[in-house]
């Protein structure tokens, strides 16, 4: 009986994943512009910018980075951001704001299950794009590939961060019970996280006192340290794991509570 139930439930997850795939790819040009576009622009800007910073002298060393290493930092920064922080939980907030959650209250499939399944589906797309991007970059001979075990550790760690990021984005999403425009929260979170996690420029270039403070926050563990793994340095791995796990659990609990409170408000007020 129990086994049966879980099997049908997995079926529900699977079909949800499939449907989200279809949704993501429904408008072709959008798909390209939304997903491939940022990749192109990112490399375009970063490559050109650092090329002019190094000004033809690619052996110049800036805080331990020569040109090649600097470019590789940005390649991995892109891959990590893509896989770990790509998901925006847009639909989630929209569902709540437009009152579509009523249907989840009736479906024998929970709101969080639906959105976690969409997230999984999205992650698959992001991974494919990441692999594709890496393929193209290595075709141009720009990529320094780490040893295979470092690569695997890096991927696993990044996926773990993506779970953390998802729980955080989920929180901004369910804020839609109270907030008209949750995109502001998300963009704010992205801006801050990008800046403080070393996704824009390596933290090595930041003033030392800032980095010292940052090491006490989850931010560097989101981008900077995973990049380091891909670049062949295992620093602060277990500390990072502890910090990320801690926050993931905290956010999961908060999400649960916020959802409960929100749904009470929703059913009471009819919104």
């Amino acid at each position: 009986m129990f086994k049966d139930l879980t099997l049908t439930n997995i079926g529900k997850w699977w079909i949800t994943i499939q449907i989200s795939w279809v949704k993501h790819t429904a408008y072709r040009l959008n798909f390209f512009l939304q997903i491939i576009g940022p990749a192109l622009v990112f490399f375009f800007v970063k490559y050109n910018l650092w090329a002019s910073i190094y000004a033809g002298d690619s052996e110049q060393i800036i805080r331990g980075f020569n040109f090649e290493k600097m470019i590789n930092y940005h390649i991995w920064a892109f891959v990590v951001a893509l896989v770990a922080q790509g998901h925006g939980s847009w639909n989630l907030a929209e569902d709540i704001r437009l009152g579509r959650i009523s249907s989840y209250l009736i479906y024998p499939f929970n709101f969080w299950e639906f959105h976690t399944a969409s997230w999984l589906s999205f992650q698959v797309i992001q991974m494919i794009i990441a692999a594709f991007t890496l393929g193209i970059i290595s075709y141009f001979g720009l990529l320094i590939f780490p040893s295979f075990d470092y690569f695997l550790i890096g991927v696993a760690y990044t996926l773990f961060i993506s779970l953390f990021w998802f729980t955080l984005q989920y929180l901004t999403g369910v804020m839609a019970f109270w907030l008209e425009e949750t995109w502001i929260l998300r963009v704010m979170l992205n801006t801050v996280a990008y800046f403080l996690s070393g996704a824009i420029i390596p933290l090595d270039l930041y003033p030392k006192w800032i980095v010292d403070i940052l090491n006490y926050t989850p931010f560097p563990y989101l981008t900077y340290y995973p990049i380091k793994i891909f670049m062949g340095e295992l620093t602060n791995l277990s500390l990072g794991l502890y910090i990320i796990s801690f926050w993931t659990i905290v956010f999961a609990i908060i999400n649960h509570l916020v959802w409960k409170k929100g749904i009470k408000l929703y059913t009471a007020a009819g919104m």
């Binding site: 408008y27 040009l29 390209f32 512009l33 939304q34 940022p38 192109l40």
Partner: peptide
């Protein structure tokens, strides 16, 4: 295109 999300992302790029 009907769905303008992609174009809006292009604008931001």
């Amino acid at each position: 295109l009907t769905d303008g999300m992609g174009i809006n992302f292009l604008r931001m790029q």
